[in-house]
């Protein structure tokens, strides 16, 4: 259903991705049948609560799932090439070269025993073998300067613990963009930072991305960040994609009750208190059959279809794709949440 006329413009296509956790009493499905695509040069935002599988999905794209987790089925195509079928060596040429990744916590994302400059220079030299150490360092200084690190020549000689969190995250941005990747993955890049420097770092990320013209997948639980940065948005809940579409469409009129609840919890407007979706997301082990959101969904109350059949993503009148059996009711009834809460 995603298939546009041809491959034109599609950089990354994730299809029916299933990630399982290998446990002592069997595999638990963590990410369940997720499909989406990223077009050249666009910014896609994946939004979801922690544990919704948004980070794991993108780690799977990098081939960096933590031990105990594996891709069970599906495909991940970068420019038509299935990354899941690549050998470890072929994948290494993709990591850091075609896809650059920025992680959540800059405090722990760098080796504490190695100088920042040396770790950055390595990122350059791993993919530009012929480059001399001196030339690589020159490139590092240039990169650091471009992400807004002052006096890169002296700072590069310091160890990570001598850098502030914001500066470290800038260095991580420099590292991820060192080889002009076609795709950037930023996993909650500002969550661990001081509120005061979050926007600076985000600006630095946005301008760097624009400069190299790469596409970006921004993982966040912050809808405001998504609204500012993304052109398209994908909402995940309990390991499944529940809604996706252009940011404007999704924000104007969400086609899934979960999206609506998320928006209501942020866009407080004139309300006295922010709205909170009743209940909490299920752990993958206790995910209910049917729609995972059903127990918390005002639309699902008393409906067996929601309990029994997993809804699939389908196009709606509002312009988005949503996985809900009764999305039309939600679209028709704008005040659904108020009625139920």
């Amino acid at each position: 259903m995603f298939d546009k006329s041809a491959d034109d413009g599609v950089l990354l296509r994730v299809k029916n991705l299933v990630i399982v956790s290998e446990g002592p009493d069997g595999d638990v499905v963590i990410v369940d049948d997720v499909s989406f695509e990223v077009r050249l040069g666009e910014v896609l935002c994946i939004v979801g609560e922690s544990g919704s599988g948004k980070s794991l999905t993108m780690l799977a794209v990098m081939g960096l799932l933590p031990a105990g987790l594996r891709v069970d089925s599906g495909s991940i195509e970068l420019r038509g090439r299935d990354l899941l079928k690549l050998s470890e060596n072929e994948l290494r040429a993709v990591r850091g070269r075609e896809i650059g990744m920025i992680f959540q916590d800059p405090m722990t994302s760098m080796n504490p025993l190695r100088r920042v400059g040396s770790q950055l220079a390595e990122a350059v030299r791993l993919h530009q073998r012929g480059l001399s150490r001196r030339d690589a360092l020159a490139r590092v200084y240039e990169l650091l300067r471009s992400v807004g690190v002052p006096q890169p020549e002296t700072r590069a000689k310091a160890f990570p613990h001598q850098w502030s969190g914001g500066m470290r995250q800038r260095a991580m941005i420099a590292m991820a963009t060192a080889n002009d990747p076609v795709l950037l993955i930023a996993d909650e890049p500002t969550t661990a930072l001081d509120v005061t420097i979050q926007s600076q770092v985000m600006d630095s990320l946005a301008s760097t991305r624009e400069k190299i013209g790469s596409a970006m997948v921004l993982i966040t639980h912050d809808l405001g960040l998504a609204a500012e940065n993304a052109s398209r948005i994908a909402i995940m809940y309990s390991g499944r994609l529940v809604e996706t579409g252009d940011v404007a469409d999704v924000f104007r009129q969400p086609g899934h009750a979960y999206t609506k609840g998320l928006l209501a919890s942020v866009l407080t407007g004139s309300r006295e208190r922010a709205y909170a979706i009743p209940g909490s997301p299920p752990s993958p082990r206790d995910r209910p059959g049917g729609c995972a959101f059903a127990p918390r969904c005002p639309l699902a109350q008393g409906r067996t279809r929601c309990q029994e059949e997993v809804p699939v993503l389908r196009p709606l009148a509002n312009g988005t794709l949503a996985a809900c059996h009764f999305a039309e009711e939600l679209l028709a009834n704008e005040s659904m949440l108020e009625l139920s809460s």
Binding site: D25, V28, V310, P311
Partner: peptide
């Protein structure tokens, strides 16, 4: 996706 709805959470 219909097939997947019959998949138990723990295999």
């Amino acid at each position: 996706q219909l097939a997947s709805s019959r998949r138990p959470a723990v295999r």
